[in-house]
Nucleic acid binder design. Sequence first.
DNA 1: TATTGTTATACTCTATAACTATA
DNA 2: TATAGTTATAGAGTATAACAATA
Lengths: 168, 168
Amino acid sequence: MPQDATAPTVLERPVQAGSTQLSGVEIGDLSGSLGFVLRICQLLAFDRFYRSGEPLPISAGEYSTLWTIGMNPGIRQGQLGTALFIKPAHMTKLIRRMEDQGFVQRVVPEDDRRAVCLSLTPVGEALIQRFRDTFFGRRAAEAEGLSPKELEEFLRLLRKYAGVTTRA
Amino acid sequence: MPQDATAPTVLERPVQAGSTQLSGVEIGDLSGSLGFVLRICQLLAFDRFYRSGEPLPISAGEYSTLWTIGMNPGIRQGQLGTALFIKPAHMTKLIRRMEDQGFVQRVVPEDDRRAVCLSLTPVGEALIQRFRDTFFGRRAAEAEGLSPKELEEFLRLLRKYAGVTTRA
DNA sequence: TATTGTTATACTCTATAACTATA
DNA sequence: TATAGTTATAGAGTATAACAATA
């Protein structure tokens, strides 16, 4: 149980030289932790994403998953999960959800009957096209605080770190 | 139910010019979505973090929370949650967990009896010091794939995007 | 034996809203 | 009336392990 006491609030505390803050809160060496800063950036980007523009009927994660299936018709469930960091147990549930809504078709290939291949249904395809501009049009809102040049470089480094490859 | 069919696997598909891939999977315009790429980077960083070095007795998120309380003794629960993007309902449970383990002390200040001020107990303080090197020493593993110079710039942009301020 | 995916359990975190006690 | 935090409920996502079917 909490005890009673007089404690100063953070806002009243003077800012020290060399101080590193996030929303007025001291974080010290945490600002040098890639994992920590990436997490904060990701939550901020999601926040901005969901606040801007027309609402989507599915989550950003679901849209990304459908989009990726659309780009890779016949992709195996496991391969999709590996690329998008979705664990097998969760993938089963997610795909079932997409299947129940009629967005995704599951097919067991002849050559390996253990596997499941995924593709979009016409309804699923229509869905991603219908909300394509909505989904991808939020870059401006997401990029808030960075200059166009910085955004460019930011995306380049993020892609490099993520291991995204581009073929010219 | 899945139907039978012959479907090519993604690996067999030829790589098109202009193709943008993640783990051999085509992602197209998703590589330009800040939210998507940040999410992938964050999951990758966490993966590398957890795979490297001595195991921590608490999660990375819990360590960050305790660390921040240590840097801001007497911080209000709500202020901590705002900075770290932890929602009030979850914060209550998280802090109770930390309190139950003897790491955190909750104090209701005299001047506003609705609030709760947080600080580390000696046990909590000892814990963050004990695992300080373990936690912060994983930068090398986390930074895999980036040159020291790129890492520097990457962190600078991440901090700027996150709104981390530094006082010289 | 190893691999692909499923099921089951438990826990963390998010979303939402109703609630309390203070201010 | 508004604010700080709590409680409750539902769902998403993670972690783990056991399991079935197939290779």
